[in-house]
Design a protein around this nucleic acid. Structure first.
Lengths: 106, 106
DNA sequence: CTCATCCGTAAGTGGATACTAACGGTAAGT
DNA sequence: ACTTACCGTTAGTATCCACTTACGGATGAG
């Protein structure tokens, strides 16, 4: 699933977000993702599993290697949540600023 | 601070996101926010503290009550992160789809 | 000056989770 | 067939965190 709940939960952990950001410019095998990260390769595998369940990444096998890449579904879910929130929140904020300035002049 | 790290961490917890969403349409005192939520009022206070440190909310005191409202800073930071990510990720995704279809015809 | 209301903080606890180490399975090379 | 490379999974552990309970400070009403 790609609901906002899972997407948020998946992107919370800094290490996991680092894993995700390594896929930003294209597909990568697991080993290459893990290289340079301060955690072990199995840890990266576990993170990728979570990201996959959140709809943030996709994978395919290529020989003995497993290639991961970004799946737009997950980011789309978060963007939808944010967009939906953005308008009403900013509107309410602007209204409040307006109200405060009216209060000031009194 | 309103860095993406804190914003993500703050919005991860479902209860805390529920607290945040109650401020969507305007300022509210703590008691009113807590009413109807399945957690105690002190828990809400702790959530509000985290949201504030993330730059997601702002507060002012009004008599004996404390009024919270959304601070655009936090949402802005997340939106910036998402926008920045969105382009490169989608570009890489499109390039990969292109590459795959080329591979298909071979 | 009490008394009630509203709220933040501290302490303590239970549950979730990120991590490592060890193992097994699959594919490619020799 | 043997070895090597690459990866997922399991078990176990340590850490983090969301929550409640109890408490104390500040404001307003009487």
């Amino acid at each position: 699933m790609a609901n906002a709940n899972r997407v948020f939960a998946a992107l919370t952990d800094p290490t996991r977000r680092a894993v995700f950001e390594r896929l930003r410019h294209g597909p990568r095998p697991v080993g290459e993702i893990a290289r340079g990260l301060p955690v072990s390769r199995p840890a990266v595998s576990q993170h990728l599993k979570v990201l996959k369940e959140a709809g943030l990444v996709d994978d395919r096998s290529e020989g003995t290697r497993r290639i991961y890449q970004i799946d737009p579904k997950g980011l789309g879910a978060m963007r939808a949540w944010l967009d939906q929130f953005w308008d009403s929140a900013l509107t309410a904020f602007a209204a409040e600023v307006e109200r405060a300035s009216k209060e000031e002049k009194k």
